[in-house]
Nucleic acid binder design. Structure first.
Lengths: 187, 187
DNA sequence: ATGATTTTTTAACATTTGTTAAAGGATTCG
DNA sequence: CGAATCCTTTAACAAATGTTAAAAAATCAT
């Protein structure tokens, strides 16, 4: 759990008391490559932090598997559109390698907010940062070509090495065939 | 300002004290059609609420005017990627009709958070809702055709009547010519 | 290791969207 | 009101991406 707490302290310093309260609602889980966390159609009540491995959020559109986002070690992943609305999520989280993950019980977390304004602030800041990422992602999707978006991914060498191209293609909003074509041009 | 406070109370009930503190950092502004709020390149330190009128966030990409989002009466509008990072914004806000707007001083607002956890919570909830909207927008951009996205806009009759098609086109991520083509097919 | 399965590439053709230019409509402002 | 400006549509051609199918390459499980 130390990695997660180090991550927290990057946002704000936390008292020992708050750390203790947080520790009680976190648990470590180990998943084998390909396994999923939670099912489609259930309301999201967990926030995950990746210790080791990679995960993706995905869903099916007209039977086609679409990747919405990836998270690597040291990053938070959650199905925000369900977590913040209480609506069932049509998305699932799957790990793409053997993964060690910290599960944060969101129901209990939200319950801590009244007694620990510090914790409420911490997660406000975490999700504000996520919000900013998402706004930037819209710019990237809407106003760059698929080729430009692929080139941007090349700057994150991890991503290309560790994630199958079919998932990268849907993440970029194109078909796998189009991605292959773009890759061929670049050689 | 009553409309704004009614909007606030939809998220959580506020004490008279909190309302008073909020009132002190809000001011009403009147803008003529086409006028802009704040300049490109400045850090965003204001959150706006529309009383009457419409506004859009836009920026220039390679000299082309791109609309990122619209806001109508009863809605909040802010350049999140600058507000939450402190980085200068490359975007501007412009009104598309004569508009009455409430400007919330964000620097002062953030200063209220320590003394008024209620206000911190209020804006946490407001921006969580904005975050969810943005996540849904990504789905819509990435996995629906321009025609499907246009049809979705038809469900918001206001939008089409009150906003020039050129802005709608860039909001949809297509050229004005493509939008005209889509509209022609539908007749 | 080897056969089965999954992932990636390639090809050919279809569809969508972009680009440029011009014309027709609508709006604004003196 | 009328001229100027801005907005929207149309057309023709170019470029990008989608679709389907098949082959090649990589990975997995026994």
């Amino acid at each position: 759990m130390t990695e997660l707490f180090r991550y927290f302290q990057k946002f704000i310093p936390l008292t020992a008391e708050s750390l203790l309260a947080l520790e009680k609602i976190c648990s470590v889980q180990y998943l084998k490559k390909g396994e999923s966390l939670q099912n489609f159609g259930q309301t999201c009540k967990t926030i995950y932090f990746i210790n080791v491995g990679v995960a993706r959020i995905f869903y099916y559109k007209d039977g086609v598997d679409i990747t919405e986002s990836f998270a690597f070690e040291g990053e938070i992943i959650a199905r925000v559109e369900s977590l913040f609305t209480g609506n069932p999520s049509q998305k699932a989280i799957q790990v793409l390698e053997d993964t060690e993950i910290v599960a944060i019980n969101a129901t209990q977390l939200f319950g801590l907010y009244d007694a620990h304004p510090q914790i409420e602030r911490l997660f406000r800041l975490i999700f504000e940062a996520g919000y900013v990422e998402t706004v930037k992602r819209i710019e990237s999707i809407q106003f760059h070509t698929a080729e430009e978006r692929y080139e941007a991914l090349l700057l994150k060498p991890n991503l290309l090495k560790r994630i199958p191209l079919k998932h990268i293609a849907s993440y970029l909003g194109i078909t796998q065939v189009s991605l292959s074509r773009i890759r061929a041009i670049q050689r």
